[in-house]
Design a protein around this nucleic acid. Structure first.
Length: 869
RNA sequence: GCCCAGUUGGCGCAGUGGUAGCGCGCUCCCUUGACAUGGGAGAGGUCAUAGGUUCAAAUCCUAUACUGGGCACCA
């Protein structure tokens, strides 16, 4: 006997233990069996998982379970990402708290600490994924910095190098002063900030009026190597070819012409700083200008800045503006909004800096993914992300892959005086020194779908599982990760890494704001699981995870899901209470079914089909929705109530038919729900499977099972709809006349559907409407009675002494108004349909039927009101 | 500046051509032997605005407004 309420904790612990013991989630290549493969987006080893991870992994687990249940060889590979800058930052914070200087500690000792941290962190993360019910193939755990993955990284680097797709060069890169490293273009975020536009006078060497340039960052002027004006700008024609002096340092620079310069912006004269601005860099290339660095990697001004050398960017800016003003160089200062670039890891302002870095050429690598997209060999769900993805690939720029940090794969290039650089994993010998930089963490992430299966070795796993099937991730790393996996997949194995990418939204707080520690609106998934159960959290997340849409997460949704879980629990409990203790098998074949049975079987079949199709289309929200409505509103609210008549009665064919329906519908529905809420469904299925005639130890092993036979029955559904409407109309009347729910009342019925209600549906009506008796209206309408009118049936309920006639008239008038508005709508529709030559005949018939029903209702209501008046 | 998505009852969201739905909240009634983590009955929306297509528009088209996002630019 099940407990009265579902208690998640013991069930979850028990089920996890049994799944683990059975190695339920393990996969091996199986000839002739279709593989279904997902590689986890490896969480960074920066701490614990957040609710976004809970969503991401619930979705993946649902897909994996779905395909496993469909009979495919499902494999979901677990693992973590070393997380490069993000993880190094975590460690640096720890060191800071311990007052340890990273450089004093030294690279080796630092890396040792990182390894320890990583070990603990992986354990935490994988433990949390496990608790979520994730059927990850635990024997396949990988880490982006473990030995096999390091081999993959080295091999990829070497191969790209040999193909001429990797080069080292001095370029303008995005430099994070705080993290002390270069970043790629997509690791930079932009935000609008208020600032000023300074108009600065650059005079001529003889002291005469020169040019006035406008800039938001006066500190870069020490790196100026020209002033540029538009050749068509008459205001400045007289200055072209002349020389002007940079204030304070008096370094002469030429005034040049370039059509890039726009008239309207600033003063029309542009100071050119090739070492600190991308556009200026390009301008400098065109005009063979020198690039002078005014700001160093430490964010401080360089020697080039004269007396300002050594000042931080912020201090220098204030000082220089003050001095410009004092010495008469500042002609104007206006408010100005400008977009600043910030580091996606630490948020500090990015400095475009000229430095020597490693790059991967992208244009060539982007071709195959673009072709695959056009050919439909790669699809993104939802589709609207395909355009941004395509645009990014089309406009792709070279990828800066070197990072000036310690945590990561060290660039496998060695240098020696007088020798060409050598690509090697090991030291080539004495005198060679390895490049001190490490690779962008996304370089190894890009190889993840290959590397987890042993690439570059041509393993059996790789042959079987690659390409993988589905990638599930958030849109924030579409370019950073998804696009790059595709590029690498095509580059090395000539195939896309996966044909489908499912892009889900971000979990926000209930008012739609992004969750962040600083806002204090972070929801801890573990807390949700502790409070309401894992199934409830999974259901709440997935029921709201409409493709591509963000989720406004409210704990109330988990409470609602918990209630639903409990509803499932109790409906199973009820079914079990009505089955013999010694299990007998209740199949659907050859039963004496009633309308209600055939109705729920028809509804169940439709719901299962829709749920399965939705899962195939990566839409678990739709699957969750249809099963929720079916199980709660149809199975529990109606069918179980309808079955009670037979269940409380004597043993016999009728009772067994009801039992068979209850058992089979419940079993199939629990299975359909399993990918979304695995724990409770497994537990309940285990309790009823013997009655259902099934023996698989786990739902995942047994797989989906649809109802035996074809139960689609539109006519039955319609008929049952009429019964339900009749019952609802009586209930409504009872409620409005304040008839106590427990009080059984008598009723008489009339109308075209009355015969059916008095015949085969009588038991339903008595049971669900709490009637003492239901009789035909032979002798006319009873006196002192209230009236309920449904389509096809009118009920009169004698309520001598209870009825307030004024109230009753009011109630009926309201029903009449509704009937009349229904008629109006139906008439309008009929008029429309009959006016159209193209109107489908069945639509016309349907509308006519609706209209006639409403007309009949109106007439009866009118009659009744007339009698009461 | 270009592109994409969204705008539906108090809140959060479904719904892609035929009489507006769900969850939460709200009102009234009910502890009847699955479940008060429950049941029954209600209130509450001219589906952002303006045009258009169609017999028929929340649904398709165009424009506008607002919100969010992507990309580019920003002297």
């Amino acid at each position: 006997m099940l407990d009265k309420a579902y208690d998640p904790k013991p069930v979850e612990e028990k089920r996890l233990a049994s799944w683990d013991a059975a190695k339920l989630s393990h996969s091996e290549p199986r000839d002739g069996k279709k593989p279904y493969t997902i590689v986890i987006p490896p969480p960074n080893v920066t701490g614990a998982l957040h609710i976004g991870h809970a969503l991401n992994n619930s979705l993946q687990d649902a897909f994996i379970r779905h395909h496993r249940m469909k009979g495919e060889e499902a494999c979901w590979v677990p693992g973590c990402d070393h997380g490069g800058i993000a993880t190094q930052n975590v460690m640096e914070k720890q060191l800071k708290a311990e007052k340890i200087d990273r450089h004093a500690l030294g690279r080796d000792a630092f890396l040792e600490r990182m390894q320890t941290w990583t070990r603990d962190c992986k354990k935490t993360i994988l433990g949390q994924l496990h608790r979520l019910g994730s059927t990850l193939d635990w024997q396949r755990e990988a880490f982006t910095m473990d030995e096999p993955r390091a081999q993959a990284v080295y091999h990829a680097f070497k191969t790209l190098w040999e193909r001429g797709l990797i080069y080292r060069g001095e370029r303008l890169v995005n430099w994070c002063v705080r993290c002390g490293t270069a970043l790629s273009d997509i690791e930079v975020e932009r935000e609008e900030r208020k600032g000023h536009l300074y108009h600065i006078h650059y005079r001529q060497p003889d002291g005469s009026e020169g040019v006035v340039v406008a800039t938001t960052r006066p500190i870069t002027m020490f790196g100026d190597t020209a002033v540029a004006v538009n050749p068509k700008d008459k205001r400045w024609t007289h200055m072209v070819g002349k020389t002007v002096l940079i204030p304070f340092i008096d370094r002469p620079i030429p005034v040049i012409e370039d059509s890039y310069v726009e008239f309207e912006l600033g003063t029309g004269a542009l100071k050119v700083t090739p070492a600190h601005d991308q556009n200026d860099w390009e301008l400098g290339e065109r005009h063979k200008l020198a690039a002078i660095k005014a700001i160093g990697p430490d964010g401080k001004l360089t020697e080039a800045a004269g007396v300002y050398a050594g000042l931080s960017r912020e201090k220098a800016q204030d000082q220089i503006v003050a001095d410009l003003e004092a010495q008469g160089f500042l002609r104007k200062k206006e408010d100005h909004k400008s977009a600043v670039q910030t580091c996606y890891r630490c948020g500090s302002v990015i400095e475009p800096l000229l430095s020597l870095q490693w790059f991967v050429k992208q244009t060539e690598l982007a071709k195959a993914p673009l072709k695959a997209l056009d050919a439909g060999e790669f699809k993104i769900y939802p589709k609207n992300w395909e355009k941004p993805y395509r645009d990014w690939l089309v406009n792709i720029k070279d990828w800066c892959v070197s990072r000036q940090i310690w945590w990561g794969h060290r660039i496998p290039v060695w240098y020696k005086d007088g020798e060409k650089p050598l690509v090697s994993l090991e030291s080539p010998g004495a005198g060679w020194t390895q490049d001190p930089d490490v690779l962008d963490t996304w370089f190894s992430s890009a190889l993840w779908p290959l590397a987890v299966f042993g690439w570059p070795a041509q393993t059996k796993d790789l042959a079987y599982y690659y390409p993988t099937s589905t990638l599930v991730t958030g849109y924030e790393i579409l370019y950073l990760w998804v696009a790059r996996m595709q590029m690498m997949g095509h580059a090395f194995l000539d195939k896309p890494a996966f044909p489908d990418a499912v892009i889900h939204g971000i979990v926000r707080d209930k008012s739609g704001k992004k969750m962040s520690k600083s806002l204090g609106n972070v929801i801890d998934p573990l807390l949700m699981m502790d409070k309401h159960g894992t199934d409830a959290l999974r259901f709440a997340l997935m029921a709201q995870a409409f493709p591509g849409k963000d989720i406004a997460f409210d704990e109330q949704s988990v409470v609602g899901a918990r209630n639903f879980v409990n509803k499932l629990w109790n409906s199973t409990r009820f079914v079990l209470m009505n089955l013999p203790e010694t299990p007998a098998v209740y199949r659907l074949e050859a039963r004496k079914f009633e309308v209600a049975d055939r109705w729920i079987l028809s509804r169940c079949q439709a719901a299962l089909a829709k749920a399965k199709a939705s899962m195939d289309e990566y839409d678990p929200a739709a699957a969750a929705g249809v099963l929720y409505v079916f199980l709660w509103d149809e199975f529990c609210a109606w069918y179980i109530e309808l079955a009670k008549g037979r269940l409380t009665g004597a043993e016999g064919e009728g009772k067994d038919a009801a039992r068979a329906v209850l058992v089979q519908v419940l079993a199939a529905s629990l299975k359909a729900m399993h990918p979304i809420m695995p724990f409770v469904t497994e537990e309940l299925y285990a309790a009823i499977k013997a009655y259902a005639g099934e023996s698989a130890e786990f739902i995942l092993r047994g797989g989906y099972q649809s109802l035996a036979g074809d139960w689609a029955a539109p006519d039955i559904e319609k008929e049952m709809g009429q019964v339900m409407a009749a019952v609802t109309s009586i209930r409504s009347l009872r409620s409005q006349l304040n008839v106590p729910p427990g009080l059984k009342i008598k009723a008489v019925v009339d109308g075209p559907f009355a015969a059916a209600l008095l015949g085969k549906h009588k038991a339903y009506a008595l049971l669900l409407a709490q009637l003492e008796s239901l009789e035909p209206m032979n002798g006319g309408r009873p006196a002192q009675s209230a009236t309920a009118v449904a389509d096809g049936a009118v009920f009169h309920i004698p309520l001598a002494g209870i009825i307030d006639f004024a109230k009753e008239r009011e109630r009926l008038a309201k029903d009449l108004a509704k009937a009349e508005s229904d008629i109006e709508k139906c008439e309008a529709k009929l008029k429309n349909l009959s006016a159209a030559a193209t109107a489908p005949a069945e639509k016309v018939a349907e509308a006519r039927e609706q209209r006639d029903g409403a007309l009949a209702r109106r007439d009866r209501l009118k009659e009744t009101i007339a009698v009461l008046s």
